[in-house]
């Protein structure tokens, strides 16, 4: 449904997005993770035909991004939730949606049906005649999501839809995205929230100007290979640390009497670690193996790039 090949955008000397290649299937929820300034919003803006690409190709639903006549067709095919809700505060929730329905060429019957449907699904129907400016942040965000769906788009771009929302509102929006997933819509989700990406997305791309990694959450977690062995000691001393430093282990951090050691094969390495500690006179309270998380994978990739 969405394909890009070496998609690049430069602003003068600054490369905001560098050669991004990806393919997103119909009905897939794809998460784009990356730090601030990684190029997530720029990528979405290019795909939504809001700004041009410097080089590379991209297509949505078979229409070519950057081709004048195709741009209107792409915009009709997609829904867009920007990072700022951008509602008309003076207009009611109903009028906000009705306006966008008209711009998407929905008939009056379609507009009525979809407005009622989405406002009810998002729990805003009772407030349909209330000015959007009086809404809470969470309600505004929900209304912005409803606005993006008013024409029943096949593809939905959401730029940080739960940012700055309280946990309850964020959960409502997340649950709604999961409902949309059941309707087989293709969803492209920009987010900072690793937990959200892990829970919602079928696949995740980690972007830091370049696409650093792409895969399912499980694949990305596995990609860091590293697992950690956490050893809780009664007392850490120099002899123990010296003994461990002689072993061919990964990075080791000391936090009080707790040692966290990067290991690749804990089944073999843990025995060596325990042996080295006891020979150095250390008394072990516990040994735990911790698998790497999406957060580890994300931080590793982003830090490597730096």
């Amino acid at each position: 449904m969405i394909e890009t090949e070496n998609l690049t955008r430069k602003f003068g000397d600054l490369t905001a997005v560098d050669g991004v290649t990806l393919r997103i299937e119909e009905g897939e929820v794809f998460g784009f993770l990356g730090p601030n300034g990684a190029g997530k919003t720029t990528t979405v803006r290019m795909l939504c035909c809001l700004i041009s690409k410097t080089s590379g190709t991209a297509s949505i639903g078979g229409y070519e991004v950057g081709n004048g006549p195709d741009s209107l067709k792409i915009r009709k095919l997609i829904g867009f939730v920007p990072d700022s809700v951008g509602l008309y505060d003076e207009l009611s929730a109903y009028d906000n949606l009705d306006f966008y329905g008209k711009l998407y060429d929905c008939t009056e019957a379609q507009r009525k049906e979809n407005i009622e449907r989405f406002l009810k699904l998002l729990g805003l129907w009772e407030k349909k005649d209330v000015a959007a400016g009086t809404f809470s942040k969470g309600m505004k965000q929900k209304l912005a999501v409803a606005r993006s769906l008013i024409h029943d788009p096949k593809v939905l771009f959401m730029d940080e839809p739960t940012a700055n929302l309280d946990p309850e509102s964020a959960k409502t929006v997340r649950d709604f995205i999961l409902d949309l997933k059941k309707e087989k819509r293709t969803i492209f989700l920009n987010t900072h929230n690793l937990d959200e990406a892990q829970r919602i997305c079928d696949r995740i791309g980690i972007l830091n100007t370049k696409l650093m990694a792409i895969g399912t959450p499980a694949e990305l977690e596995g990609s860091t290979r590293g697992r950690k062995t956490v050893v809780q000691l009664e007392q850490v001393n120099d002899a123990i640390l010296a003994a461990l430093k002689k072993l061919p282990l990964g990075n080791m951090t000391v936090d009080g009497n707790k040692l966290t050691i990067d290991v690749t094969n804990p089944e073999k390495e843990n025995a060596t670690i325990v042996d080295a500690i006891t020979r150095a006179g250390g008394r072990i309270q516990s040994v735990t193996v911790v698998g790497s998380s999406l957060e580890d994978a994300y931080l590793k990739l982003v830090r490597e790039e730096k």
Partner: peptide, 11 residues
Amino acid sequence: EKSLEPLLATP
């Protein structure tokens, strides 16, 4: 009020 961007995203 940042309402131009969603407007610009329409066909």
